[in-house]
Computed example of a mutant assay.
Amino acid sequence: MVKNLSNAIGRRKTSVARVYLRQGSGAITVNGKAADQYFDSPEMLFVVNQPLNVTDTLTKFDIVVTVRGGGKAGQAEAVRHGLSRALVAYDETNLSSLRANGFMTRDPRMVERKKYGQRGARRRFQFSKR
């Protein structure tokens, strides 16, 4: 049986990521795929690896992630948030460095809702003086 060292939930926009830290050699699995297969761009892979780079634990843990909702960019940032929380749950000394880099704060920016009687959140119908 596989033992989780710690687990946490990370969120961004409408994405929710459940992150499980296990003893291992640095493999990251996202929804059953390797992270470099799931996140196609190197920028998103960089975002996912940021907490591991800051805490120097790139090859210490195997990370299993289940992520749902939103797009790939939001999912990558949700994974970063969850991974940061899991690293702090595993070792409290990581908190100061992760907080200094802004990985512990949930990004509150969400899509603004569409208003009734209008074409979009901010978009208005064309004004006609006459």
Rank of each mutant, 00 (worst) to 15 (best):
H81D: 11
N4H: 02
R99S: 15
E112L: 10
L21V: 07
M44T: 09
A17P: 02
R119H: 11
K115Q: 10
P51D: 03
D36N: 06
G10I: 02
R11T: 04
K72A: 12
V79Y: 02
R106H: 02
V54P: 01
D107N: 04
Q23S: 15
D40E: 14
S6W: 08
G69Q: 01
S25K: 14
N4I: 07
E92C: 03
D107H: 11
E112Y: 11
N101S: 13
F125C: 10
M110Q: 15
D40A: 12
V67F: 13
T14A: 09
N4R: 03
H81A: 10
T14F: 10
N7F: 07
K33M: 05
K60F: 01
P108M: 05
R22C: 14
R122A: 09
V47D: 04
E112Q: 15
F103M: 14
G102P: 01
K60M: 07
T93P: 02
L87S: 02
F46Q: 07
E43D: 07
S15Y: 07
E112N: 06
M1T: 12
V65K: 08
N31K: 09
S25R: 13
D107G: 03
N53Q: 12
R113H: 15
M104G: 07
A78L: 06
K115N: 11
M1K: 09
R124L: 15
R119E: 11
L45I: 10
F127R: 01
A35Y: 13
V30Q: 05
K114G: 01
D91H: 12
E92D: 08
F125W: 15
D40P: 03
I9W: 05
M104S: 06
R130P: 14
G82C: 13
K115L: 12
G117P: 14
A17V: 04
T14V: 05
V65Q: 08
V111N: 01
T29L: 11
I28K: 00
Q23I: 09
R80G: 12
T93Q: 10
L87E: 04
S128N: 12
T55D: 06
F127G: 00
Q126L: 14
F46V: 00
V19L: 03
L52F: 10
V54T: 13
L5E: 10
A89F: 09
V19K: 02
V54C: 00
L83G: 03
D40G: 03
A35G: 00
G74D: 05
V54Y: 07
G32Q: 04
V30S: 02
Y20V: 13
G10K: 00
Y116C: 11
T66R: 11
V54G: 01
R113C: 05
P108S: 09
A73W: 04
K114E: 13
V30E: 02
G26T: 00
Q75M: 04
S84K: 02
G69V: 00
N94K: 08
N31P: 07
R99N: 15
K114N: 09
V54E: 07
N49H: 12
V19N: 01
L21A: 06
